[in-house]
Write a protein that binds this DNA or RNA. Sequence first.
DNA 1: AACTCATGCAACCGCTTTAAA
DNA 2: CTTTAAAGCGGTTGCATGAGT
Length: 267
Amino acid sequence: MGRSPCCDENGLKKGPWTQEEDEKLLHYIQKNGHGSWRTLPRLAGLNRCGKSCRLRWTNYLRPDIKRGKFSMEEEQTILHLHSVLGNKWSAIATHLPGRTDNEIKNFWNTHLKKRLIQMGFDPMTHRPRTDLFAALPQLIALAALREQLAALCSPQLTATAPSADDGDRQSYLPCTFPVSSDGQEAANQQQQTGLISYDGGRAAGDDADVFACHGGGSSLPPLTDLSDAAASMRSGSATASSSGFSCSPLPWPEFFPNDDPFITDFL
DNA sequence: AACTCATGCAACCGCTTTAAA
DNA sequence: CTTTAAAGCGGTTGCATGAGT
């Protein structure tokens, strides 16, 4: 099972392909098929290794390759398949006609992976990350929630004694995630059997990696409905169990156990 | 205008798998 | 069954380009 010497051979060109090389390769394959990639470069008159030729063909020259931005449907498919298959790019690519595994891999690494990390998800498991730094957005959200609930319980306090830093705090309290400029186009993810199903995406032509926070077309798995909780607090009703609030007021209760002193300290 | 930094993508590297001898 | 070459695949790198300062 020795490694093929391939590009180690002296004199073989590496680096970006020229138009002339592309034409030679394209012309040869259209006429003869690729056959053995090992012998192809010599037969096609190319000073490249077979591996390089194969890659150039499969990732760029193949006539059925689709170019341009990934559609929302494609994004959704990639996210779903990745949650099931992991980094099996070639397997994922078989479900996206015209897209190469390399293209999907690049798209994942430059867009989708970052987006999941930003949202506090582990890009490999598609679950909320449980380490402290990853959970920080959720913890900050909890702090915000606590402040808001406290304000609802005793509005006179906040009304009569505004603190100097209230303005600053308010600026980040309402949302701890990047907010979409368009609530409709924000990604909408759901936790289904522990996996994220990406059910939305960006509007066409919108490149910004922006996401609405909870309540504005969330791209996160469904959090506990805070408005219900707040309404219950306001009305003084303790019968919020129908909304599930009394069971666990926290998002993803399995990651934020109610008996965790660090968490309960927020409440 | 010049510089720095971030981003996207093509291509390479090296390991694994497959198939032929 | 074993060995070996070839192909497949995923991770990584490096360059071109655009945005921001």
